[in-house]
């Protein structure tokens, strides 16, 4: 999987029929130290992620193993909102529990 930071959402009225009803979020890939890797993905949000969240994205055809994605034209599924990243003995990220 890839770690990514949600930076925005994509609104698209004209799109593949089978994408209808799904939230599409733009995530910038980050390193375990939360540095931007300079690449992004548009992923289908399956875990109610929000802008600013750190998430896990499954790429390629494995993305269609995510819940409900079997027959969808998707190669990037957001499958987890990250609470904590522990890397080389340090906590490099901890999600602040902002009440929604």
């Amino acid at each position: 999987m890839e770690l990514g930071k949600i930076v925005g959402n994509v609104v698209a009225t004209r799109k593949n029929e089978r994408l209808k009803g799904y939230k599409l979020l733009v995530a910038e890939y980050i390193t375990p130290n939360c540095e931007l890797k300079g690449a992004h993905v548009v992923g289908v949000d399956l875990v109610d992620a929000g802008v600013g969240d750190i998430v896990l994205i499954v790429r390629g055809s494995s993305a269609r193993t995510a819940e409900g994605m079997t027959d969808k034209p998707v190669d990037g599924s957001i499958v987890a909102v990250v609470d904590t990243i522990e890397y080389k003995g340090n906590i490099t990220y901890k999600k602040r529990n902002t009440k929604k």
């Binding site: 875990v47 499958v79 990250v82 890397y87 080389k88």
Partner: peptide, 21 residues
């Protein structure tokens, strides 16, 4: 293995799965 990712909100199929760096 050099690290770990903890997530509570995730795809139900990943429940109980340990995710490492």
């Amino acid at each position: 293995v050099v690290g770990k990712i903890v997530s509570t909100m995730k795809d139900s199929q990943l429940k109980g799965a340990i995710i490492f760096i």
